[in-house]
């Protein structure tokens, strides 16, 4: 083969490759169109069936069910979207048998799959219908390397109110650096009363205390939290910060005194949160502490203190007007404009 023949071959190879790639684009367009269409039609049939069940208030009946066993993906997506919108016993009466019949057997198989997508579908199925029988599978999926698997498995464990699962979620909040723990925190914030009780019980363990307080600072909890007062006096700044945030969200009988004390804390964030807490109780509180906080070295504490005074009513507003110190006046002006 001479050098010009080589050239021609290279040219042909490039042209064929280009043509092949362009054909792939066109074929994908066609493929996408049909696959999408078929999947949408399946979902439409399933959605129609579930709507009918809800409208006629009847339970699931395998004979009238229009789906096939292999429509797992479509069924999962439809059930998830219904589950976001419907709650209560009627919906549970439809969802559970469908999930048990068509999703869970596959999910149990897929929980051990080497493909993360299958494990993800398994975890999502467990979220829809968590059962004690599947606790082992769920706990194993919580240790999965893939975020989209272990995140869903955590939600399933909390839905199941599994003691081991809740503990695992708290451990993950404690151990996982960065922001990845926000998903566990969210899952625990949305937990049922029974699951929250189990979480607080687990929070008695000193190692899990921070994680537990982190969740409680975002959750309203009507019952007393046993370790809160101890943590408010802790030497650990992170613990104090979370404890004060939890207290603001879940007040106790003597919380005004605690918040006033916290206004003198060394940490800026603790003082800031205490001032925020006093905004709720400022009509009842001794306002001198807030006047003092108007001279705090931190701009954010000064603003929150000014806001608390403004919310204290006429007395507070009058006190704000009397301020002459430049820093306090700045904070007062800021509150006048931004509220």
């Amino acid at each position: 083969m001479n050098k010009y023949q080589i050239l021609i071959w290279i040219f042909i190879a490039e042209a064929v490759l280009s043509f092949f790639l362009i054909t792939m684009v066109a074929l994908h367009r066609l493929f996408y169109f049909f696959v999408h269409r078929i999947s949408n039609q399946r979902k439409k049939r399933l959605s129609g069936y579930f709507f009918k069940c809800i409208e006629e208030n009847r339970a699931f009946d395998a004979k009238s069910y229009p789906g096939r066993r292999r429509w797992t993906k479509e069924l999962l997506e439809v059930l998830e979207s219904f589950n976001d919108r419907f709650h209560g016993n009627e919906w549970e009466a439809i969802k559970r048998p469908v999930a048990e019949e068509y999703l869970l057997p596959t999910a149990r198989k897929w929980a051990r799959s080497i493909f993360w997508k299958k494990r993800n579908q398994a975890a999502r199925s467990f979220v829809l219908c968590p059962t004690i029988e599947d606790e082992k599978n769920i706990l194993r999926l919580m240790d999965d390397r893939t975020f989209l698997v272990h995140h869903k498995a955590t939600i399933a464990a909390i839905e199941l109110e599994s003691q081991a699962g809740i503990r695992k979620a708290l451990v993950a909040i404690r151990c996982k650096a960065g922001s990845s723990r926000v998903f566990y925190r969210d899952a625990l914030i949305g937990a049922s009363h029974a699951a929250a009780e189990k979480m607080i019980a687990a929070g008695n363990e000193p190692a899990l205390r921070l994680a537990c307080l982190d969740v409680l600072s975002g959750k309203s909890w009507a019952l007393p939290i046993p370790f809160l007062k101890t943590d408010l006096r802790s030497k650990n700044t992170a613990l104090r910060r979370l404890a004060i945030r939890t207290l603001v969200r879940n007040p106790v009988a003597d919380c005004i005194e605690i918040l006033i004390d916290a206004l003198k804390d060394q940490d800026e964030e603790v003082r800031c949160d205490a001032a925020k807490g006093l905004q709720i109780y400022s009509p009842l509180a001794n306002l001198d502490c807030l006047i003092e906080a108007l001279h705090d070295p931190s701009w954010f504490v000064r603003i929150e203190a000014a806001r608390a005074l403004k919310l204290a009513g006429a007395t507070g507003k009058a006190l704000l007007k009397k301020q002459t110190d430049s820093q306090a006046v700045e904070a007062v002006r800021y509150i006048e404009v931004f509220g």
């Binding site: 290279i10 490039e14 490759l17 790639l21 684009v25």
Partner: peptide
């Protein structure tokens, strides 16, 4: 072919 031809193929691949 090495410079232009390749750039064209590369861009079509990106498109795909």
């Amino acid at each position: 072919m090495v410079s232009f031809g390749y750039t064209i193929i590369y861009a079509i691949f990106c498109l795909l």
